[in-house]
Amino acid sequence: MRIPHPLLGLRDLREFTYLGDAALIDRPEATADEDKAALNAHVFLRDNPAGTHRELWYHEYGDRSWLVVTRDTRTHEILGAELARDVALAAGRDR
């Protein structure tokens, strides 16, 4: 399996490690008690789709960038990869 790194091109799977669902980027603030349910869902609850899945991969043995990789969980086909930083910035985060 190869991952199309947005900066470095196609790179071998062995250079990467996997974290999980890309929704982990959107950590809720959870400063007030009523936010605790959202934080609980963020930490413990995951969708398990049979199909397209957006997930976080770390280019540990490469440039150490975090990527959001879109993968079909049924076929392992990689449909795209973006820098997680760009995804976070596009979502309105400051970094």
Partner: peptide, 10 residues
């Protein structure tokens, strides 16, 4: 210049 894995070492 590429950083990659060589025998489990970056």
């Amino acid at each position: 210049a590429h950083r990659t894995i060589v025998h489990h070492l970056g």
